[in-house]
Design a protein around this nucleic acid. Structure first.
Length: 929
RNA sequence: GCUCGGGUGGUGAAAUUGGUAGACACGCAAGACUUAAAAUCUUGUUUCCCUUAAAGGAAGUGCGGGUUCGAUUCCCGCCCCGAGUACCA
């Protein structure tokens, strides 16, 4: 019987499903191993061949770990809340739950076709009430918590209340809003309930406050910073504007330092770690107060600087145009100018961001601040090169040390003074820290670090500044004016947000008549008639953002069915953290940062044991599309004819390239028959061929329907089988590398599997293996692959394993090996890559009926690889000239004698005296003349 | 601009610790089997030079230097491609 992948693969997929082969327990004698994939958003388009790349790699790893004796948790689910389903609902009126359900069904079929070893009994869906109940529950925990800097962890809000009751706000070191009040314990005691709640809201980790948000009118929602790319929405590319709104936010900034430090403890790709580091954006410097006496006593502007050593070079304070004090600072004479400038920047910012052109601009407020050290007047300007969202929204301009300040000062004719004897101010600023300070009063003659220490001490002494650490990262906006997301379990009583009772979870998503904002601009949930808490109080109408459900899902997999907790303590303490996480690097600053944040919070509250959720992470590369083109000949008028010319001859004609479906092209040769059926107007197409073939052009592009370059895994599986698809996706190249999908070459892997099949069968196709003892060469071939695959999988080099399997089967074919002892072990070694064919062969070999999934990976025995001889490459002056077979136990003097006696070597020596002979045992001999 | 990847045959790629560059596969060419095709098998396939052929020679891992007996691998400078990020004070 020949290798029939269709029957074999269906048979085993059915077996695995019926026998719950991959169901895993939360207790075991075996060591645990948790292999996780980033779960997909089930889109309407289904999977293309690029999507399963990471899943195949993780599945190989999971299956391998099972063979190695681990209790493996390898689950899959769906991140099923999201914008596309909602956009579709707006267009068609269909409930997103309905389309999502259909999409999930299709995803599941496609995933099942590939033969993954997921424990489907643990499937999660973020849009399922039994799941989002716990997303809401975690939100409630965040609402009921504050971050205590003294213990450096989140604590229940009750500990803060207790402190207020006994000590007032004194000695509270919290990460909180800027406008918290100072009060005594007594004052707290006489605050009204509403006043207390209002104050506590400034401390909660999930809090409500008016903030400037990225508002996208086209999508009708706010977007997180990582969802805005170049001033337009990541999804859809719609314009985004800044708008002030009451918003739920997450105090992720409380965790900035821990998020940064944790990066050193996890095994993640360096680029990803770097991206998170940049995103957090820690900078060490100082905050400095510049008093503004004209505004009154004790009024000051605070700036942040990383170069406090340049403070004597300050020639201006520059504020962001949005700075809240701009109107206060503007003197009557400057009012017109400032107003004009603000209008100009508001209009400009959008275009400017897109065009990426920046001219120096700004306006003088008319006010002055007092330099804290020199006492001199410093003019206060506004300019759009200062960002409202970073630091304090105000900078001290030091033209000699900062290029932006330099350009600003030259443009407006402000004085530029050197502050270091090493500075060279020939047309630009010089930010060097070398040299000694000049024109700098108390630090004159000092070097950089001494100067910083002196200045910080001085500023602290006079109460005008202190050493400060600043982070670029902002608190995360946690609300979307959208329908298809988790409802926020909050209602409003007297304008104050309050949590619903825990027993009332989940707060179900109500039905609405349309998935659009209300006439008054409220989110879609505002359309739900009579949706009131206890029939009385308004619910929060925004829903949670896309990242809410994905920020803790790996815990739900540990204990999916639990209705009392998000996961039991036993389950969490058994599985603890994810040992291997595979997914795309596009989630670097979104999902992966938020997940680490929630994990740290859950740890602080004592629900989980580990500080970091994902110990090891691998980014699979993106699979790009590879488009094919045909070349339509144009007539004299430039109109398209029905004649198409082959790629090699196209330059002899006037042509226009057209995308052609890659599925009717093989090795860039067009199937003419299928092309005529491709589109009605091609039915009587004519061709100019080269060598009897129509050759197509090709180009690497994004994989998309409109480019006709989408390859569906189902089609590949139908033709070649899932085992071939799995191995081919790995064979394509290193997992982390991005590469275009090209079906050319898949034949090689398919041939390999048929060759493997033939090892177990005789010429007439009958199963035939021999029980005779293997030869030394056969043992060697086997143990080479046992070792190689083990090493390759451990370092995630799956492509090299596939090559090695081919080499092994080629060798065994040459040796005409059909020995059971060899083939049995080879079957186990190959199993994680090609699970179906190996299950079938395992059965044919006469093993006990059942699955091979829990067999033992064969033990490597180095004795089989020991050689007594080695064919040494012999080079003369570094150029390989000949090979010489010598015993491996031969030592250098003997080798030298043997090599120099060789006539080939003598010929290359050409009588010249030998200076030295390099000899590396088992590697090389090099004769230097 | 900054940060991080990457650059090896016609194509995807390999070379794990500085030790025979191009394994393995695709494609292509030639051949065997076949009425024919498919499938299968065999041989060849980095480039250039020399040669009827056999054999031989030279160059070669983006470019230019360096270290070394020996460099795809290490160091310095540069070019190109991709990703991320960008007035971050």
């Amino acid at each position: 019987m020949d290798y029939h992948h269709r029957a074999i693969e269906k048979k085993w997929q059915k077996y695995w499903a019926e026998h719950h082969t991959f169901r895993v327990d939360n207790t075991s004698e075996k060591p645990k191993y948790y292999v996780l994939d980033m779960f997909p958003y089930p889109s309407g388009a289904g999977l293309h061949v690029g999507h399963p790349l990471g899943y195949i790699a993780s599945d190989i790893f999971a299956r391998y770990k099972r063979l190695k004796g681990f209790n493996v948790l390898h689950p899959m689910g769906y991140d099923s809340f999201g914008l596309p389903a909602e956009q579709y609902a707006i267009q068609t009126g269909q409930h997103p739950a309905v389309t999502t359900e259909a999409n999930i069904k299709r995803y599941r079929e496609q995933l099942d076709n590939i033969g993954f070893s997921f424990d489907w009994s643990r499937e999660v869906r973020t849009s399922d009430p039994s799941y989002y109940k716990w997303t809401q529950w975690i939100f409630m925990r965040l609402f009921d918590a504050w971050y205590n800097r003294l213990s450096d962890r989140a604590e229940p809000i009750s500990s803060l209340i207790a402190h207020f009751e006994s000590h007032g706000s004194k000695d509270v070191r919290a990460v909180c809003d800027d406008d918290v009040r100072s009060f005594t314990a007594h004052e707290w005691g006489v605050f009204s309930a509403a006043e207390k709640q209002l104050e506590l809201l400034k401390y909660r980790l999930a809090y409500l406050r008016e903030s400037t948000v990225n508002w996208c009118p086209a999508l009708g929602t706010v977007l997180a910073n990582d969802e805005v790319v170049n001033g337009v929405s990541e999804r859809g590319g719609y314009p985004v504007e800044q708008k002030k709104m009451m918003q739920w936010s997450m105090r992720i900034t409380a965790y900035a330092e821990r998020l940064l430090n944790g990066l050193a403890t996890i095994d993640w790709p360096e680029p990803l770690v770097e991206m998170q580091r940049n995103w957090i954006g820690k900078s060490i410097g100082a905050s400095v107060r510049f008093d503004v006496p004209t505004l009154g006593d004790g009024e000051y502007i605070e700036v942040f600087t990383t170069r406090v050593d340049t403070i004597y070079g300050v020639n201006a304070l520059v504020l962001a145009p949005e700075h809240e004090w701009v109107s206060r600072l503007t003197t009557p004479g400057q009012q017109a100018e400032i107003a004009a400038y603000i209008a100009q920047t508001q209009k400009k910012s959008e275009l400017d961001r897109m065009a990426d052109v920046r001219a120096v601009s700004g306006a003088f407020t008319g006010s002055h601040a007092v330099h804290p050290l020199t006492g001199k007047d410093v003019p206060i300007w506004i300019a759009d090169y200062v960002l409202a969202g970073y630091g304090t929204g105000a900078v001290m301009a030091v033209p000699s040390g900062d290029q932006r300040d330099y350009l600003f000062s030259t443009h407006f004719g402000l004085p530029i003074v050197a502050i270091s004897d090493a500075q060279q101010l020939d047309g630009q600023a010089d930010s060097t820290k070398e040299g000694r300070y000049i024109n700098s009063d108390i630090i004159n003659g000092l070097a950089y670090q001494e100067a910083v220490d002196v200045l910080i001490a001085k500023l602290e002494e006079i109460g005008a500044g202190k050493a400060t650490i600043n982070y670029r990262m902002r608190d995360a906006i946690f609300g979307r004016q959208r329908y298809w997301g988790e409802p926020v379990p909050v209602y409003f009583d007297g304008g104050l947000p309050k949590l619903i009772e825990e027993a009332e979870l989940p707060l179900l998503l109500p039905d609405v008549d349309k998935y659009l904002p209300t006439e008054t601009g409220e989110p879609p949930l505002g359309r739900s008639k009579g949706w009131k808490y206890r029939g009385e109080f308004e619910y929060e109408l925004s829903t949670m953002p896309g990242w809410a459900g994905s920020s803790w899902y790996w815990y739900r997999y540990m204990d999916t069915q639990n209705s009392r907790e998000f996961a039991s303590a036993e389950a969490i303490n058994y599985w603890r953290d994810v040992d291997l996480y595979i997914g795309g690097s596009e989630h670097a600053t979104g999902h992966l940062l938020y997940s680490r944040f929630w994990n740290k919070f859950l740890k602080d509250m004592g629900y989980v044991p580990e500080e970091e959720p994902f110990k090891k992470l691998i980014n699979q590369g993106m699979i790009q599309g590879r488009s094919n083109f045909v070349y339509r000949v144009l007539d004299a008028q430039g109109k398209g004819t029905n004649t198409f010319v082959s790629y090699g001859l196209k330059d002899e004609y006037r042509t226009i390239p057209l995308h052609v479906d890659v599925n009717i092209v093989s090795n860039d040769v067009l199937n003419l028959e299928k092309f005529r059926q491709f589109r009605p107007d091609f039915a009587d197409a004519e061709f100019v061929l080269e060598n009897g073939k129509y050759v197509c052009g090709h180009e690497v592009e994004k994989m998309s329907k409109s480019k006709y370059n989408v390859v569906n895994p189902d089609d590949i599986i139908d033709q070649y089988g899932a085992d071939t698809l799995r191995m081919y996706e790995m064979f394509l190249g290193p997992l982390e590398q991005s590469k275009p999908w090209n079906t050319n070459g898949i034949e090689g892997v398919y041939k390999f599997l048929r060759k493997l099949w033939k090892l177990f069968h005789d010429a007439s196709g009958n199963f035939a293996v021999s029980d005779t003892a293997p030869t030394k060469a056969e043992w060697k071939a086997l143990h080479k692959i046992i070792k190689k695959v083990e090493e390759d999988i451990e370092r995630f080099s799956f492509n090299t394993s596939v090559s090695s399997f081919m080499i092994c089967v080629n060798e065994l074919t040459d040796l005409k090996c059909n020995k059971r002892a060899i083939l049995q072990d080879l079957t186990v070694v190959l199993h994680s890559y090609a699970p179906h064919i190996t299950e079938e062969l395992w059965g044919l070999l006469g093993n006990e009926p059942g699955t091979l999934s829990y067999a033992a990976y064969p033990a490597f025995n180095p004795d089989y690889l020991v050689e007594s001889e080695f064919s040494y490459p012999v080079s003369v002056n570094g150029k390989t000239r000949t090979n010489l077979i010598l015993p491996l136990d031969m030592d250098q003097p003997e080798v030298e004698r043997a090599v120099l006696a060789n006539e080939d070597v003598q010929r290359y020596l050409d009588g010249k005296p030998v200076r030295k002979v390099i000899f590396v045992k088992g590697r090389i001999v090099n004769v230097v003349v």
